[in-house]
């Protein structure tokens, strides 16, 4: 049977600690998600999410502190706005926006984490496996390739290097860097 693969980006102050609490309370939830710990949900670049889908994730769960509780003042508000836009972008790409979920889970909400995890796994299950129709290797782990849309940027880097115009070089390089 199809078991969805889920990447969870959890902020270390709230949701990661909430997941710890779920553990110490021995609450049970499906094992589909693997957690990537970040300092703040505001650290999550939309590209991280796109990359996860590119690499074979069927769902991405972002967990942050409740509004007003951010350890860094307002990182979670930044996330909230980014996720709203990203969901629109996902649907344009043919990825159901429900595959990306943002939840506020505090360090005291082990129960909520369990509930969210179970519910999200069910939802992604009902959506079925994500078929992106990508050619080339998918889910090849360490030997990660750049997201497809970044490839032109790599070319731009080469072009930029040839010219002496500093600006061009500057514009091109960062994209390449991210694609690395």
């Amino acid at each position: 049977m199809y078991e969805p693969r889920i990447v969870c980006f959890f902020c270390k102050w709230c949701t990661y600690a909430g997941a710890d609490l779920a553990g110490t309370s021995r609450k049970q939830y499906p094992p589909n998600g693997v957690v990537v710990r970040v300092n703040c949900s505001g650290r999550i670049d939309p590209q991280h999410v796109l990359w996860a889908f590119r690499e074979g994730a069927d769902g991405v769960l972002i967990g942050g502190c409740h509004p007003g509780d951010c350890h860094y003042q307002d990182g979670n508000y930044k996330t909230m706005r980014r996720v709203t836009f990203l969901k629109r972008m996902l649907s344009d790409m043919g990825i159901e926006p429900e595959r990306l979920r943002l939840e506020w889970i505090s360090a005291a909400e082990g129960e909520k984490l369990v509930h969210v995890m179970s519910d999200f796994v069910d939802e992604v299950k009902s959506l079925g496996a994500l078929e992106l129709g990508l050619t080339g290797e998918k889910g090849n782990g360490g030997a990660a390739k750049a997201p497809a849309k970044k490839k032109p940027a790599v070319k731009a880097k080469a072009a930029g290097k040839k010219t002496t115009a500093k600006k061009t070089g500057k514009k091109a390089k960062p994209a390449a860097r991210k694609a690395r």
């Binding site: 693997v34 670049d45 991280h48 690499e55 782990g141 990660a144 991210k178 690395r180």
Partner: peptide, 19 residues
């Protein structure tokens, strides 16, 4: 970010989805 660069995040995500 030191010791949590984008590159590290990408590789961690890939590893989490492997297999």
């Amino acid at each position: 970010q030191r010791n949590l660069t984008d590159e590290q995040v990408y590789k961690m995500v890939s590893a989490a989805l492997e297999g």
